[in-house]
Design a protein around this nucleic acid. Structure first.
Lengths: 206, 206, 206, 206
DNA sequence: GATGAATGAGCCTTCATTCAT
DNA sequence: TATGAATGAAGGCTCATTCAT
């Protein structure tokens, strides 16, 4: 058995922290209660985590990394299609990726709950914005490629892009924020893909 | 004559509170500093407001009411068009209403900033959700009317509706959250209207 | 009576802080006990002082300022004599100044006790060194004047000057550190003046 | 063969402790870090030392003993000269002893640094005073001898003696406190010897 | 009616030492 | 015997709210 006392306690802190952060949010959750929930004294906590924010990071960072990877792979796939000119396939990939995202998020439901709803007071408050910025970078890259290829399309302003991309992620994350069931979420984002691909087409005139 | 000392002080508290809440958020803003900013003592504060949250409400409630009214009027107008069968006009109204909303929000920029970005720790944290719920009620009502009129369309699930409506408001509020200029915002929501009307059409198949 | 409740409490904190800092030293004295000694809660403390170190500063700063002024006056007097060539008078002034210093220190006995014996952990730990540096500056200035006037003397190294000046102040402060009575102290520094003037004469060969 | 694992570890703790005590002072240095620096666990520490203060003692006690011995020898030599009436030689011995002291201190620089600058919070805080007391005992003994021998001299009060002796040691220790180089220190105490012998002569009138 | 000093519970964090394994 | 997780008491500090003046 790989679970030493240390690891057991560590796990208990993680669980207790998760529970309390979700229940009350980062700031209102207090360490004493988290420790009580983990069956340890406050002193013991600091053998496991540097401080309160460290615990939050530990809770949330792996999920962020995982999503980042998923995103990175999807990104590559999309650009391949764009480069080979199969624009239509991009929309399909987009839909598939969305499903993957949702599945990943529901595999780490609590982490994303934490990130999206309980992170006020941490450096993760603006997690959605961060995701949006990433996506915008890609959108701009896509613009460049289309231009290079001599494909005609309407450019819209940065602000407009931002708004729409934000809207997109805000939909995706809504499934976690409002405790959708996995199946509901998957169905919803299907609709979302349709909705958005139609919107984009109209806007950029492809 | 309308500006007694009392009212003057009241106004000063309002201003100071607004400033500090925006600067630090509801919880991290502290009452002593708010009072200092208003040139009063902490004791005097409680003559004007029941407690900290009351001040926040006072700051924010008028804007909510105003928006509610705007919303109500728009709602009526939309239903009139739906009832008379001029579906196409509904999309136009939608776009116009959006402009009005934006203008209203920018007329009360600070209040909406407060509501959308600084309300963690108050009962207003979920302001966006509340707006979304309102809109959903209308969407459902519209469904009923279309049905009554025998007009064919695709029904989508509550969750899907929720997600898309949320997305819509999340766009609208994004203009405040990211400090768009009024003109930018107005232009953006124009795009948004196009984007969404196209999306909706596709989804519900009208 | 100018003593409002605030000032009364302020004074009580000062007294309690002084007592506890002297008893245990800055670091080992704790705020809760200081407050208990002052008959207030810890919260109240922070209406009077920014933090623990602030209280220490308040206790000690006036005495430092006072000494600085005394020093400044003595300095001027000495340089006047040096400039007019009455070197012999300088030794006399030196002795008189020492008496004044001692009297000043005994007028603010607790403050100097604090400064010299209880300041570990504050920015005042090296108070003696600071005084020594001041005096050394003057010694060097005196060197320059003697040189300008063409008076012959032995120069000794900075380190030697430092050591001897340190020794001088260490004597002076010893009277506080070891709770001499004022009269004892005054008599002692008389001897000290003799002792040091003899030493200096020999060393610099005047 | 003399370096068992135990002794090796012991030595490592000594080194790590020395480093950290010097760096932060006794109280602010923390045991966990000392142990980490020694490559052991906190539990293991207590197999080598009873507690934190024990470690400090171990670090510092040998140097104290060594100095004590040096002192004792010097003391005997001085009294021999006094008894045989060679008062002048006493001053010379004094200067020689000082050189030896300095050399000894610089041979065990860290220990004296610890003793003089990092001992706040231990029973060694007043090491200088302890040295002074020792010297004073000798001074009084010398008084007695002079008296017995019918030699005339000015008696000065205990407090005066204390002050001047303190001043003397405070010079000596200053060389460690301010990180003089050995050569600087040796030169300085030469000056010191001259300075003080002149002072003493004047004061006691020999 | 206004003042503002005081409350008091709460917060995160530190650390020498102990003790089950 | 060595380990190192856990203890537990203490520390400095914050803040919405109360209440004697």
């Amino acid at each position: 058995m790989s679970s030493s006392t240390y690891e057991l306690t560590h796990e208990k802190i993680i669980e207790s922290g998760k529970r309390l952060f979700i229940e009350k949010g980062y700031e209102r959750a207090n360490l004493r209660e988290i420790c009580k929930g983990a069956g340890i004294t406050t002193g013991a906590f600091y053998r496991h985590f540097k401080d309160k924010e460290s615990l939050f990071s530990a809770l949330v960072e792996p999920a962020i990394q995982g999503l980042r990877e998923k995103y990175s792979i999807a990104e590559d796939k999309c650009f391949d299609y764009i480069l080979e000119g199969s624009l239509e396939k991009v929309w399909n990939v987009s839909a598939e990726v969305l499903q993957e995202f949702i599945n990943y998020m529901f595999d780490h439901f609590d982490c994303f709950k934490l990130l999206l709803q309980c992170s006020d007071g941490t450096k993760y408050v603006n997690f959605t914005d961060w995701m949006v910025e990433e996506e915008i970078k890609d959108t701009l890259k896509m613009y460049d490629i289309l231009e290079e290829k001599g494909i005609e399309f309407n450019r819209i302003s940065m602000k407009e892009i931002h708004m729409i991309v934000h809207s997109y992620y805000s939909c995706v994350f809504e499934t976690v924020l409002h405790d959708y069931k996995r199946e509901e979420a998957l169905q919803c984002v299907n609709t979302l893909a349709t909705f958005f691909s139609e919107g984009w087409r109209k806007i950029i005139g492809l």
